[in-house]
């Protein structure tokens, strides 16, 4: 009966973009990813291998995140997509458009209104809530990869919980530079077991991973791995007693909203190299400015 039953080769009824499935992926692929997600949630921080598919966007441009989003999105979801914290960066626009076209989902730029947020390189400043899922795009899911290039070796290290090489590397940083010389993709320990790459978010965002009410899913398309941090899970940034983990701070405030607590992007505004600082999270910045000025149309 192979090939006849709906779960073997079913195609979406009523896909929006003619000729393609709802949210692009076929049902068999979605089921495979969904089963992987269950295991990822059950073993927090462990990288589940999955049969990553080619997406119509290049590897490295968020195909892992897109496959997870495609597997979880439903008709009632409201999707937000950010890149560098901004809704209006070109790749964020492109991915948001892709799902609006293939799944017909509602989209938003407002963090609190979104049910699914796909992100590259940031966690929103606005605290997330329990009805939200944050989907991270991950380039290199293996936190040990730059210390040990072989997958066979790193898998053994994870199996044994042997993270000595990572601690040695961080300690060498301290000995050489006086600091841990990692400012983004800063490794964390999840639920006291797996060392995990939180994706290339600045370490400023690491504390937001800890005991978050929202489910966090991570997808690496090219490397064909997915992993998860369930809500209310302990996530600890690696550090040493004499060199505790600390996040970036700026002396400046956001030039638009005046925020002193958010992650700031540095802009060079003239040929003399003068600098201004603005929030990387465009929605957060907009919400803070709203009482004072009307919201600008995104994408203009």
């Amino acid at each position: 009966m192979n090939g006849l039953n709906p779960n073997a080769a079913s195609q979406a009824a009523g896909a929006l973009e003619s000729g393609y499935n709802f949210a692009y992926l076929d049902e068999q692929t979605k089921r495979m990813i969904r089963r992987g997600l269950l295991k990822a949630v059950a073993v927090p921080g462990y990288q589940v291998p999955f049969g990553g598919r080619e997406m119509p966007l290049p590897y490295g441009w968020g195909t892992g995140g897109m496959q997870l989003s495609a597997a979880i999105l439903g008709a009632d979801d409201v999707l937000k997509v950010i890149d560098q914290g901004a809704d209006d960066t070109t790749n964020a626009v492109s991915i948001r458009r892709f799902f609006a076209r293939t799944a017909g989902v509602a989209t938003t730029t407002r963090t609190p209104e979104a049910t699914v947020i796909q992100t590259r390189h940031r966690i929103p400043e606005t605290p997330l809530h329990g009805e939200q899922i944050l989907v991270f795009q991950v380039p290199i899911p293996e936190p040990l990869r730059f210390i040990e290039p072989s997958e066979t070796e790193t898998r053994t290290m994870h199996a044994l919980g042997d993270y000595g090489v990572m601690h040695v590397k961080l300690y060498e940083d301290i000995a050489t530079f006086g600091h841990i010389a990692t400012s983004y993709a800063y490794p964390v320990t999840v639920d006291e077991r797996y060392v995990m790459d939180p994706s290339p978010i600045p370490k400023f965002d690491n504390p937001k991973l800890h005991m978050s009410p929202a489910l966090m899913l991570f997808g690496a398309g090219r490397e064909k791995r997915l992993y998860a941090v369930p809500p209310f899970t302990e996530v600890v940034s690696l550090d040493f007693a004499d060199h505790p983990f600390a996040v970036q701070r700026w002396e400046e405030n956001c030039a638009f909203c005046g925020s002193h607590d958010s992650y700031l992007d540095e802009l060079i505004v003239d040929d003399a190299g003068s600098k201004r600082f603005v929030c990387s999270d465009t929605d957060y910045c907009m919400q803070r400015r709203e009482p004072f000025e009307p919201q600008q149309e995104v994408g203009q």
Binding site: P6, N7, A12, A13, N21, K30, A71, G74, A75
Partner: peptide, 9 residues
């Protein structure tokens, strides 16, 4: 089959 599977998942 598409949307009910998604909601159940």
């Amino acid at each position: 089959p598409v949307l009910d599977a998604q909601v159940s998942f």
